[in-house]
Amino acid sequence: MSDKTYNILVLCTGNSARSIMAEALFNTMGRGRFHAFSAGSHPSGAVNPFAVERCEALGYDTTGLRSKSWDEFATPDAPQMDFVITVCDQAAGEVCPIWPGKPITAHWGFEDPAAFAGSDEAKREVFTKVYRQIMTRVSQFVNLPLHVLDRNAIQKEVRAIGDRPAEESNEQR
């Protein structure tokens, strides 16, 4: 078993919901093996309150969560990423910065819960559904035996997670 801590950058366009929830899930479910960050190509400037609600329900400290630009992670003094994962189709299609260290990349598309219009109760349901889908994929990722796989095998596995349907987990949080 490796003692390496892997850095993960989760990207979305607005960095207000999906990428924020993924950051919290990686940092919590990764049990110290992963240090996740999130950012957006065009950050909204605010974290969606329903995303904060989901992260708090996980027991994640939300005091440091903020919507930020991916440019913060493309500077020479930024943490070097091992993985960069896009979670929205729009960010996946954009020209990303060149990430130092040539991280493994993948796209895991999810519906944008922040775009849903409806009552707070209906919004909460959509956020919970997407949160569970993200949780399923993060769970698959954090259980990969990264310490025994070579780079090509890891790349294949991480991309395959995004290719599988993002079904909801039976786990309740």
Rank of each mutant, 00 (worst) to 15 (best):
V148G: 00
E111M: 09
R33S: 11
V47S: 13
G30A: 08
P165W: 05
E53A: 15
P145G: 10
R151W: 12
T86M: 01
V130Q: 15
E167G: 13
L144K: 04
H42Q: 13
A114M: 10
W108D: 06
K68Y: 07
E53S: 13
F116G: 00
D163Q: 12
I134T: 04
V47M: 08
D150C: 12
V158W: 04
T63Y: 13
D163I: 01
P97V: 01
R54I: 11
V142K: 05
M21T: 08
E56H: 14
I154T: 12
L58S: 04
T5L: 09
P103M: 10
R151F: 13
D150L: 12
N152Y: 06
L144Y: 06
S2R: 06
P113Y: 14
A114W: 04
A36E: 04
G101F: 15
I154H: 06
N170R: 01
P100R: 13
S2Y: 00
K4A: 02
L144T: 06
G64W: 08
E157I: 03
S38Q: 10
R151K: 13
K156I: 08
E167K: 10
L9M: 05
S67Q: 09
C12N: 04
E94N: 05
E171C: 01
S44E: 15
M135Q: 04
I8W: 02
A122C: 04
S119F: 03
A24I: 06
A115T: 13
G14D: 08
T63I: 09
C88T: 11
I98A: 07
V95M: 10
Q140F: 08
N152F: 05
L149G: 02
S16A: 12
V84K: 07
G101S: 13
A51N: 12
S69V: 06
N143D: 09
W108S: 03
A115R: 07
R132V: 00
F116P: 03
P97D: 02
A114I: 04
L58Y: 03
M1Q: 14
E168A: 02
C12G: 09
A78T: 02
F110M: 09
F50D: 14
P43G: 08
H147Q: 09
C96P: 01
E125S: 03
Q90N: 12
I161K: 06
Y131V: 04
L9T: 01
N15D: 01
H42R: 11
F110E: 05
A46H: 14
V130G: 05
F73R: 02
I134S: 08
A74T: 00
G109A: 09
T5S: 03
V142T: 02
P43H: 08
A92I: 02
F73N: 00
S16M: 12
G30D: 01
H147T: 06
G64Q: 14
